[in-house]
């Protein structure tokens, strides 16, 4: 077999190689050829980029929550049975809220005080999530600096979608993301890096967040800074120990 024929034979196997369809021996032989053949190595890179682009673009559609509920109700009635008890749960929750409200009145708590406590609890919860993320050996569940990998990863895991800006030319780098919870509501936690600092950006559905921190800055007692804003029905919280200016710059990028 001439060198040219050999080359053509390997070039015809590149898709099989990238699709994981070659056996171990063939894979080793092809990798040997790739080390010596810049043309085939370039072709592998080109096709790999296409595979990534199609993989990302192909994860386009997410089911509505109502469809999942319908299927669960029709197909798995046992699992969905608790829905039938929703009115009872709602009534119990309302009663508890009423009792809590009565207690507040009883203590003659000033509305501003209540509000400050609520706000402080929210900030503490976010700071705790941020700190525990940084302390974790695996801070994120999807590790990628590519927004086209991180965003689709959340499809089906959280009940909404969001936009991620192109960070090229900015000092910020996307580290990855994970699912986070606030008041038992799922949302996205994105981790960004700027110099040696990490920034968590939490995104939740605005209607699920009971807070007046809609568009403002706050400083936690532990010297963490927080920026929050609302956009397209989503509530964003950016939290970090970076300088407030850096936090604001990332917030501005995300608002674009």
């Amino acid at each position: 077999m001439t060198e040219e024929t050999k080359h053509e034979s390997w070039a015809g196997k590149i898709d099989l190689y990238l699709d994981g369809e070659l056996d171990a021996r063939q894979m080793k032989d092809l990798e040997g050829h790739l080390r010596e053949c810049p043309a085939c190595a370039g072709e592998v890179l080109r096709r790999l980029q296409w595979k990534r682009a199609i993989h990302s673009a192909g994860q386009r559609y997410s089911p509505d929550r109502s469809l999942r509920e319908r299927v669960e109700k029709d197909i798995f009635p046992r699992k969905a049975a608790w829905w039938h008890w929703r009115p009872a749960f709602a009534a119990t929750a309302a009663l508890l809220l009423l009792l809590a409200g009565a207690r507040m009145v009883q203590l003659e708590m000033h509305p501003h005080t209540q509000h400050a406590i609520q706000e402080s609890m929210l900030v503490s919860e976010l700071v705790d999530s941020h700190i525990s993320t940084l302390a974790s050996a695996n801070p994120v569940d999807v590790v990628s600096t590519d927004r086209h990998n991180v965003k689709p990863w959340f499809a089906g895991k959280i009940p909404f979608t969001f936009d991620l800006p192109d960070l090229q030319g900015s000092p910020f780098e996307l580290v990855g993301g994970r699912v986070s919870y606030l008041d038992q509501t799922p949302g996205a936690q994105l981790l960004f890096r700027v110099r040696k600092h990490q920034i968590s950006v939490f995104i939740f559905q605005a209607r699920a967040v009971h807070s007046d921190l809609v568009e403002r800055q706050a400083v936690d007692a532990q010297s963490f800074h927080l920026e929050s804003w609302k956009r397209d029905g989503l509530q964003y919280f950016a939290i970090s120990d970076v300088a407030p200016g850096d936090l604001r710059a990332l917030a501005d990028l995300l608002k674009k």
Binding site: R60, Y61, V71, E72, A155
Partner: peptide
């Protein structure tokens, strides 16, 4: 079957 829900929906929509 339930873990496949989003995958099946995406494929169905395509």
């Amino acid at each position: 079957a339930l873990p496949l829900f989003s995958h099946l929906y995406n494929f169905a929509h395509w």
